[in-house]
Design a protein around this nucleic acid. Sequence first.
DNA 1: TGCCAGGCCTTCC
DNA 2: GGAAGGCATGGC
Length: 278
Amino acid sequence: MLKLRINKPFDLENTITCGQIFRFKKNNDDSYTVILSDRVINVFMDKEYLCVTSNNEEDLENVIINYFDLNNDYDKIIDELVKNDKKISNAAMFSKGLKFIKQEPFETLIEYIISANNGVNNIGNSLNLIAQKYGKKVIFENKEYYLFPNAKDLKDVSLEDFRNCKVGFRDKYLKEVIYKINNNEFNLDLLYELDDNEALKVLMEINGIGPKVASCILLFAYQKYKVFPVDTWVKKIMKSDYNIEGEENIRSYAKKTYGNYSGIAIQYLFNYSRNNKE
DNA sequence: TGCCAGGCCTTCC
DNA sequence: GGAAGGCATGGC
């Protein structure tokens, strides 16, 4: 078992359950089983130690540090944010220890296309069905798990096949984007090179990807922290706490106030707004 | 039953 | 270019 001493704030539960990832399970012993791109892990906190087991122990420490972004100094980021906006400190303290999980780009792309007008339960269910049918099986603790397939694995999946995975009307979006990737009409690696606005533009040329989905992909898979989604929860808290209404006004305020860390600030506000109900 | 879920596309002015 | 309606599915 890998034991990592954590000396900065780290909220494992909030990080896993706050809606950035969908393929995880909470176990009876309060540990979490999470399916990463290349392995399955079981994680829990034991005092100041993060404890991890996996079906694949190779380079596990680096994989975990990278996945949970453990070396990034969020305290410093929060200090910066609070310096420019005292009012965000409640939301930042509420989300203290929340890390941005570094997700695999292709899976993230599919995840957030499916997320449009959908519930968290349905999203996870569909992703698991896709993985079960087309992903690689791995055994961990005597149970079967399925890694998420890549674009090649999904090359011949039909609209009807996707419908059977309960993705509903998003079937055609998935088929189209997978076709484009396999025929070199769209390259996920290119997004690393582009600046934020170009990357957003390229993503939004794909059917099924609008500003919200594109922002989530760039934030969660590419660590483009300047990019941020504005949804109903963000609108709600910006109105009540900042007296700012309208998406454009929210965008210009966030850019001006939070700068390079707008995505992180907005995620804190989102998390606070959504989970701190009265 | 009806509404909503971290939207987006198409159609119609 | 902006508003309105439609869209699969499941949870409440």
